[in-house]
């Protein structure tokens, strides 16, 4: 993507995000949020993060690749376990990176 296209994309996302933020205190200040939109909003973050995680770990070049002979899926598994046990964001990131480095050290390619 060229820098100009990227800037256009960022401005578009920025304007859209600003309109979301201004929507109920400005544009539609006299109305309340429809119930269906409220319900939809609650599921957007879990759905997005799950799709991005799955895609980031197991999709490469438009194909599904379960690369269990590389460190990343295992490091991600360690992060999932720590996330589940601690519910701490920084501990999760730290554990995942530590596991990645440890695996790279133990099994150099």
């Amino acid at each position: 993507m060229s820098t100009t296209t990227l800037l256009l994309l960022l401005v578009l996302v920025g304007v859209l995000t600003y309109l979301y933020r201004y929507a109920m205190i400005g544009l539609f200040a006299s109305r309340s949020l429809p119930a269906w939109l409220h319900a939809l909003c609650r599921h957007i973050a879990p759905a997005s993060f799950a799709a991005l995680t799955a895609s980031g770990l197991f999709v490469a070049g438009g194909e599904v690749v379960f690369a269990f002979d590389t460190p990343r899926p295992w490091a991600a598994l360690a992060a999932v376990l720590v996330a589940w046990r601690t519910r701490n964001v920084l501990a999760t990131i730290g554990a995942g990176m530590a596991a990645l480095y440890l695996l790279k050290l133990l099994f150099p390619t």
């Binding site: 993060f49 995680t53 980031g56 999932v80 996330a83 701490n88 964001v89 990176m97």
Partner: peptide, 20 residues
Amino acid sequence: FAVPLTFIALLTLLLRERAG
């Protein structure tokens, strides 16, 4: 790799209810 790890961490915090 910290980016997918961040998504994993946030996802775990969000998975409180069945519909999510």
